[in-house]
Design a protein around this nucleic acid. Structure first.
Length: 271
DNA sequence: CCCGGAACCTGAAGGC
DNA sequence: TGCCTTCAGGTTCCGG
């Protein structure tokens, strides 16, 4: 599942290969994934535009275009972006093909069709409600404390709320909470300053390590040339239910939080 | 505003 | 072998 480290890896892989290229065609195999404009309106507005810049905000992959407009892709749970030499064979999960003027094709593959494609004049129409970027210098532990204050929902759920903090999802929320030794069900607004500082540090470290490992290929995630990430081999608790905690060897538990599989060590993360 | 649950979507995995 | 159910989890919507 692509979260911040996976999208960051895709951005880093794609940017040097496609920045400066021009879109020469778009084929929509699952038009329903286009949120705006209407699917028929996408191609006329996109074709002919040059990619000025490839960026990331939260879990959105952003293509800033020469005419000032912005193409935003979201991979949701099962999406991937593959860069292939043209003509490339679409497979059964290919939902959109973007042709580029140097003969490359960008394939948006998505088993479950939950990914989204948006082309907008003002990208804040899409990203405006996102919380801070967790790796920005301006994201301090004070900011984290302020964002959590007053909230009674489980910290795990609040960490996954993109309007609170952008880019963290199920896997990295579990990893950050383990690293900070915080129980996932504790109310988000009830932490001491020391616990918030621990959580803040854990979020930064977990994300940076995962980016260094090029993301986690738990299910469908692939890098643009089809390579896997390696972060899945280094997870401490995520997707490791029943296995021993790497710190204390207690069996890692899996509980539902907001209907999401949540992994934690009941000893290291005592209530 | 905040919270929790359902819905979206479809292939993979597991039970019988 | 095959049918059926459950699971996966990012986001949005809805009711309380």
């Amino acid at each position: 599942m692509p979260e911040l480290p996976e999208v960051e890896t895709i951005k880093n892989d794609l940017a040097p290969r496609i920045a400066g290229l021009r879109f020469t065609g778009v084929t929509l195999l699952s038009p329903g994934m286009v949120r705006r404009p209407r699917a028929e309106g996408l191609s006329p507005r996109l074709v002919g535009q040059t990619i000025r810049e490839v960026a990331r905000r939260g879990k959105y992959l952003i293509f800033r275009l020469s005419n000032g407009e912005t193409l935003l892709l979201h991979l949701r749970m099962s999406g991937s972006l593959l860069l292939k030499p043209s003509p490339a064979q679409a497979d059964s999960y290919t939902r959109a093909i973007f042709n580029l003027d140097n003969g490359l094709e960008l394939h948006f593959n998505d088993r479950r069709k939950l990914g989204t494609i948006e082309l907008v004049t003002d990208e804040t129409e899409v990203t405006g409600k996102l919380g801070p970027e967790p790796l920005d210098k301006s994201f301090t532990s004070e900011v984290l404390g302020q964002r959590l204050s007053g909230r009674k929902a489980p910290i795990k759920a609040v960490l996954c709320d993109q309007t609170v903090l952008a880019g963290i999802g199920n896997m990295y929320a579990d990893e950050a909470l383990f690293s900070a030794r915080i129980h996932p069900l504790k109310p988000a607004g009830a932490f001491s300053r020391e616990e918030i500082e621990r959580l803040h540090r854990a979020i930064g470290e977990v994300l940076k390590v995962a980016i260094g490992n090029k993301g986690a290929s738990i299910s469908d995630y692939r890098r643009p040339y089809g390579e896997l990430g390696s972060q899945q081999y280094f997870f401490q608790v995520a997707h490791r239910g029943g296995q021993p905690c790497p710190v204390c060897s207690t069996s890692i538990r899996r509980i539902p939080v907001r209907n999401r599989g949540t992994y934690f060590c009941p000893r290291c993360q005592e209530w």
